[in-house]
Design a protein around this nucleic acid. Structure first.
Lengths: 342, 342
DNA sequence: TTGTATGCGTTATCAA
DNA sequence: TTGATAACGCATACAA
């Protein structure tokens, strides 16, 4: 009944020498059977595999790493594990890596953290590759550690990057709002200097231009992707003499904060103001009114990054930049310009 | 200007022999300076430390692990990384482990997954300890891998467990609702058989009893901690002839789904129905109306688990069960029994 | 207090 | 196709 761990009788994990002895071959042959089975004669191979199974042999990873200089581990650097945005991406990465026999180590690290250096030292030795989600280079890529940037692209680097077309997506949001008749469309920005922010802001302006609307700097409000900045934006809107009839918030979290604060102030969304977000986090669909937003294919983003890294590890060269498709998800938070606002 | 990696001139990472040569000592002494500095004469120690700094020496982890049989890594098993509930716990674990020089490897694994076995094989070799968040034993603890269970306790195991008092917390929610005048209080349950569910359900019944209210099985609704089950519960409530005036949902996610669906049906929360949740996830405060709930000290839970594990690694024996304090957070989703319901 | 020497468990090189 | 053997880089028992 006892499904105890497969080991030698003694309870100590079997080593390669145990397998070799049982199969009547050398350790070199055992190693070959595991790494390059077709270089071993079928009969020998069968004997070894039998012995491996009997002893439940699993190679010692540390010994393997020491000798082969490969760790079969990948480091994933996220800026904030608490941000729900990343969870599904991580899952996409993990499932892809696991299928290829690689483990995933997560570092939750503010890009400004001094631990970046410590982490670089870690990455140099403990992983075969790195996926960066925080828009900051680790520095290890220069030392030959294959690296991929995901979502937050990093300008001027030579390694592959995976992202969505933030600019085009932002344009699409503005086009949607304009098509509903909105002519005063505000933009709730992300943290200054952030790549995502730069792109989305540019898309906002281009979207206005495409709809024949003038850009008004007074309608660009500062934000930092946090709930609090969404709430703060509500104050701004309420104080505004010439209120916008729609707001494009550059993250769902800000959009949700904004909507909540507006409702608290007695405004109706979308009756008085339409609000759109970006990301399509889980709570976008469950907030009231359900949020119109841009869906990022998060799982696919994770998968794509992991695949690109695996390709690099295999010596291939993935494209310098891959852009995945987003989708405009129209829900209840955006609607035609209301009678009051007209 | 170039902050290149600290290595020997050749670009190859320095080894212990390089340090030994530069400092004019044996490798054993270098090793000692790093592991037990006080066993080395101050002057020698200084020379070695100087050499270490000059060469930017960092011990090779694989070699270290191979020799010492310690990996300085901890495995954390979560049932669902997408569940926002875990993120802050993970951060609490990570910061504590990092401070002690241990890395954190996350496995995102449905408890029913067949990968549990594969993971056990991994844990046996690649980590010094395990923290289980999914209520399932890995089996490696029997083989001497120190293990801690967190949040979802596992009955009948001998290793330390960290959790909150789910039962007492549930009682407190019911007491709160009862104090607002509610006499028909429904309970939206979690997945059948889950430890958390069993405890919270018991607390619900005890809470009713303490308030002098009768238990009515018809007021216990099935759920599984997902949004969808919260939405489904709304249908149940609306169809109910003798509607409850309050609902205690055993997770915030279900509570939020329930509230949204009730609002969609034209009911007012808390005017028509009060709703309370459990967990205090980030969105509890930002949903409308803001959710009354039980706050779990998630970061502290993570820290406590990590500390308990570190204690075990150090040969000490933490208590078999530690319960951390929760807090009833009263927000806007619960209120006095409304006139319509009275 | 310091040094010598050995082995941790593999993989890779070379020779057979 | 297979085997002998030398690293991989470190920590530790033991000796000095």
């Amino acid at each position: 009944m006892d499904e105890s761990a497969p080991t030698t009788q003694s309870g100590v994990p079997a080593r390669i020498t145990d397998v070799a002895r049982l199969a009547g071959v050398s350790t070199a042959t055992v190693s070959r059977v595991l790494a390059k089975p077709d270089q071993v004669a079928p009969r020998t191979r069968a004997r070894v595999q039998e012995a491996v199974a009997r002893l439940g042999y699993v190679p010692n990873p540390a010994a393997r790493t020491l000798r082969s200089q490969k760790t079969r581990m990948v480091l994933v650097v996220v800026p904030d594990l608490e941000n729900v945005f990343f969870s599904r991406i991580l899952r996409g990465i993990e499932e892809t890596l696991a299928a290829a026999g690689h483990g995933m180590i997560i570092a939750d690290l503010d890009p400004a953290s001094p631990r970046m250096e410590e982490l670089a030292a870690f990455a140099r030795r403990q992983v075969d590759g790195v996926i960066l989600l925080n828009g900051r280079r680790l520095g290890t890529e220069a030392e030959g550690v294959p690296t991929i940037a995901l979502c937050e692209t990093i300008p001027g680097v030579s390694f592959p990057q995976i992202a969505v077309d933030n600019r085009a997506s932002a344009r699409r949001v503005v086009a949607h709002l304009a098509s509903l008749g909105h002519r005063r469309i505000a933009y709730l920005a992300g943290p200054e200097g952030n790549v995502l922010e730069v792109e989305r802001a540019a898309g906002y302006r281009e979207g206005l231009a495409a709809a024949g609307l003038a850009f008004d700097p007074a309608l660009v409000w500062p934000g930092d992707y946090t709930l609090a900045s969404g709430v703060a934006a509500a104050g701004r809107l309420l104080a505004d003499g010439a209120r916008p009839t729609a707001v494009f918030a550059s993250s769902d979290v800000m959009a949700i904060g904004l909507v909540g604060a507006l409702q608290e102030a007695g405004l109706d969304v979308p009756g008085d103001v339409s609000v759109a977000g970006f990301d399509d986090i889980e709570f976008a669909a469950m907030s009231r009114p359900a949020l119109t937003t841009i869906r990022q294919p998060r799982r696919d983003l994770g998968r794509a990054a992991a695949e690109a890294l695996l390709a690099r590890l295999a010596g291939r060269t993935p494209p310098a930049l891959s852009l995945l498709e987003t989708e405009l998800v129209v829900r209840a938070s955006t609607g035609p310009v209301g009678p009051r606002a007209r």
